[in-house]
Design a protein around this nucleic acid. Structure first.
Lengths: 140, 140
DNA sequence: CCGCGTTTGTTGGTGTACAAACGGATTTTG
DNA sequence: CAAAATCCGTTTGTACACCAACAAACGCGG
C-alpha cells in the first residue's frame, strides 16, 4: 500500500492549483498595473498586434466568448483606448482599432507586463520557467 | 539580435496561458461532472475533509474570500449537500457540515474528480505531469 | 432570386472573484 | 474593566466567463 496513493486530496488537484496560481498572478498584475485588468490588457494587446478586427474575431483571438468580449470592449472604449466603427462591407460587424492613447498606453506598458510575467514565475528557476511555460501552453 | 527576444507577445505570457488552461480544465470538469461546479466541488470536498468548519474558515481552506464562499455555501445548502448551524460558543460563526447526501455524493464523485485531473494533464507525459503539478503548486 | 443556414453582435441569467463598507461579536491590550 | 483591534458574516458594486436565445445581416445552393 506504500504511501498515500489513491486518495482524493483537493490540494493536489490541477484545477485547484491552477485557480490558486491564477489568483496569485492576478494579484501581482493588479499591483503592478492597476490601470487595466489582465483581460483588458490582453484585448488591448491583441488589437495592437492585429490592427483592425471585428469584435467577435478579437474574442476568438483572446479566448473570450462573444458575451465576455463585449463587456471588455465596452470598458476599453469607455476609457478611450479603442474606437469602434461600423464595417461598410458587412453591416453586422464592429471594426475595432486602438486609439492613439490606447496604442501609446500599450507600448508604455509592455515592459511592465513582461515584469509581471517574470514575477509570477519567480518561484521557479530559470530552467523550470521555460519548461513550465511550454507545458502550460500544451494544456491550453 | 538572434530570435524574437524582447517583444511582448500575449500568447507567451503565463497569465494568458493560465487562463486558457483553466478554461480547458473547467470545460473538462463540466463535461465529466455536471452536478457541481469545480468551486462547489472544492468546497464540498474540504468540508468532508475537515469536518465541521466555520464559513470563513472554509473560505480560507479553499482560497475563496468571504464574499465568494458565501455564495458557494448558499448554493450547496440549496442543493441539500451541506447544513449550517449557529455556533453556540461564538455567536458570529456559522458551523458548516456535510449532509449525508453531501458526503455520499462526494464519495461517489472522487473517482470522477481524479479522472478529470488526469484528463486535464493528458497532453503531458507521465514524468511531465509530476514536474508540472509540483511547479504549479509553488506558484500558488 | 429566394430560402435557409451561418455569422455577428446583443441580452439575460448564473456563477465565480474581489474590494470596500458595515454591524455585531470576540479578543487583545492598556 | 474599558477601549481598541480583530474577526465573523453580509451586502453592494465591478469584472470576468459561459450558456442560451435572439434579430439583423450575410452568403450559398438550388
Amino acid at each position: 500500500m506504500a504511501d498515500d496513493t489513491k486518495g482524493y486530496v483537493l490540494d493536489n488537484q490541477v484545477g485547484y492549483l491552477l485557480r490558486r496560481a491564477t489568483q496569485r498572478h492576478i494579484g501581482i498584475f493588479g499591483q503592478a498595473l492597476p490601470e487595466l485588468t489582465p483581460t483588458q490588457f490582453a484585448a488591448l494587446a491583441k488589437i495592437c498586434e492585429l490592427g483592425a478586427v471585428s469584435q467577435n474575431a478579437l474574442g476568438r483571438a483572446t479566448a473570450m466568448d462573444a458575451a465576455t468580449i463585449k463587456g471588455v470592449v465596452d470598458r476599453l472604449r469607455d476609457k478611450g483606448l479603442i474606437a469602434s466603427t461600423q464595417d461598410a462591407n458587412d453591416k453586422r460587424r464592429l471594426l475595432l482599432a486602438a486609439s492613439d492613447e490606447g496604442r501609446a498606453l500599450y507600448e508604455s506598458l509592455t515592459a511592465t507586463a513582461l515584469r509581471i510575467s517574470a514575477e509570477t514565475l519567480e518561484p521557479l528557476s530559470e530552467d523550470e520557467r521555460i519548461a513550465f511555460v511550454e507545458m502550460l501552453a500544451r494544456l491550453g
